[in-house]
Design a protein around this nucleic acid. Structure first.
Lengths: 345, 345
DNA sequence: TTGTACGCGTTATCAC
DNA sequence: GTGATAACGCGTACAA
């Protein structure tokens, strides 16, 4: 492990000053003679020169890095978001630091702190709960933030929202339009903005149609894991079936939970959608792989990541500090888990 | 956006030297009087001091960052790996930069390069193809690497391997032990080490039992996406059913592909496992959610991430440069997609 | 126990 | 067009 070669080493080899070398190697538009430029470029290549970004970043006060804080990468919704973020980041030579908060406020704070220490100037948040004080301080010190999938009451943060309420409304409406009147809603704890909104959408659609809502809420949501959500779905379906034997459709607050619901129904010998229709929410890829393929509401996850990263980089590069707020719209994905209610029901 | 406060600012406020401030705030064990220590700590807190890691890292030549290069985060196997990596990294105050190569060699090289420029000293690789030259150069300059899920012929790289051959053997054997004799193997292109190994395991088990192998290979694998794998599974199952009408079991090279196989079988009115048994490979969580729950071979993904990160941090911290190689073992997860062959078959 | 002064690798400012 | 030289924020010999 030899000592890394610096611009000074190159300068010596090229009989030039480190200033000139810097100008050439950093693609500055500062005038340098063609001959000198060629010479330095050649020598740098021969010497296998690797620029030390720490020096550059310290000087220019810009780390080419953005951070993303999400609940968990194991949630396919978020992994799609990340994929979108990274695509845009890569195009601009930025790197992405992924932080899984696992819904733990301490982890969130820790990540936020060390991110600031590493001079990360832009972050995309989808997990901050109530720790606004630290975040507020960072914003004043030049940090930029975009919030996705979550409402943060902070003037300086651009928001990429998703119309959860409308999504919830659309899903419920879809069932109603297929003749269903006894529709249950299975949801995890209503502790996040998104959850309450979907719930509201459901209630609104039911109310408009003059139908009586049937809501079943799962116990304290621990750390997100697909298995947990799946199990919740199974349990909620069990409860619903026992307490409301006349249901003809169930709306689950996310796709994995819908998988659980379908699992329970199938296990009990009920056919989906012939005996009961099921609709999910999220639009993850696995929805098409189960039986029957899941009808659901699609959240534009990948596009969300793309948009969030674009907005963030705009903020970082321009001095444009307009803090806009975008609202993405839900889309119904019709597959095969919903059918028109049978006359005999 | 005010100018950030540095140790010099703190020094002024505390009537101390920046050296003393540094010693206190960086938790050095250098002796500082209790009074002074308390004073500096207090003032730093009041001033909302945020250390600039770039300065520290430039000085000490250590970025507390590791990089992970994988094909795609959208593959649940890799997202589990990342979760494991990050858990260990967090415990040691390291950050994780996630790089999705999307199997694109140019992206891989680019990531490797900028990683080196950012003074990342450790990386976990699962995607490097043949670009050994750049990697080799970096290793000589103090970079440390761990390879997972892939064989890299490089003396200086620790490997965390998985016994794919044994996994393939176990899956096939499991079917044979359930009385199956006409067993098809559905696989994506045999372009990765893991793929060829599983294939070999299948062949070995078949050969030992004196059975004739039936292999169907999907066309050129583009970028990984669950949908693509799923579609491959559907198509391969179609082909198999047409060419080999007497099959009683199908082994798919990954779980998502098995989902596709099951989808095709179900669509054709065949019952799984009553008419045909299906076994997968990977052990992703979604396997338990489909119908029937998928019997599969479990790769310890999360544990792989944990182990990889531990090994890497050991390398970074100690000067211990022993390059060991670990081989993780497969485990059969029995669910409900395999059954004993019917007498009438 | 505390302070001074230098260097990490780079870019920016100013002379030439 | 080129070259000294001073920062950037921090850690750390070395001196006091």
């Amino acid at each position: 492990m030899k000592k890394p070669v610096t611009i000074h080493d190159i300068a010596k080899l090229a009989n030039a000053s480190s200033a000139t070398v810097s100008r050439v190697l950093s693609n500055s538009n500062y005038p340098v003679s063609a001959a000198m430029r060629e010479k330095i470029t050649r020598i740098a290549k021969e010497a296998n020169y690797i620029p030390n970004m720490l020096g550059k970043q310290l000087k220019t006060n810009t780390s080419m890095t953005i951070g993303v804080i999400i609940p968990s990468i194991s949630n396919p919704f978020y992994s799609s978001v990340i994929l979108g973020v990274e695509e845009i980041a890569r195009e601009h030579n930025y790197h992405v630091i992924v932080c899984n908060s696992l819904q733990n406020p301490d982890f969130e704070l820790g990540y936020l702190q060390t991110m600031a220490e590493k001079q990360v100037k832009g972050i995309i948040l989808s997990s901050i709960a109530q720790n606004t004080s630290l975040l507020k301080g960072l914003l004043q010190n030049g940090m930029h933030a975009i919030a996705i999938d979550q409402r943060i009451d902070e003037e300086e943060i651009s928001q990429i929202e998703f119309n959860y309420a409308k999504g919830g409304y659309m899903a419920t409406k879809h069932l109603i339009e297929h003749g269903h009147t006894r529709i249950g809603y299975a949801t995890s704890e209503l502790d996040r903005h998104s959850r309450t909104e979907i719930h509201q959408g459901y209630l609104k659609a039911m109310s408009e149609a003059g139908l009586k809502p049937v809501v079943e809420i799962s116990g304290a949501g621990k750390v997100f894991s697909s298995s947990n959500e799946f199990d919740s779905g199974k349990q909620l379906a069990d409860k619903m079936l026992e307490r409301h034997k006349d249901l003809t459709a169930i709306f689950a607050c996310n796709d994995v939970m819908a998988f659980g619901v379908i699992h329970t129904l199938t296990s009990r010998g009920l056919r989906v959608p012939d005996d009961l229709s099921v609709i999910g929410f999220d639009g993850i890829e696995y929805g098409q792989m189960i039986h029957p393929p899941l009808t659901t509401i699609k959240q534009p996850d990948y596009e969300m990541g793309i948009l969030a990263c674009k907005l963030l980089l705009d903020k970082l590069q321009d001095k444009d500090s307009s803090h806009l707020s975008v609202m993405l719209q839900p889309r119904l994905v019709e597959r095969a888990s919903v059918t028109t209610r049978q006359a005999g029901d």
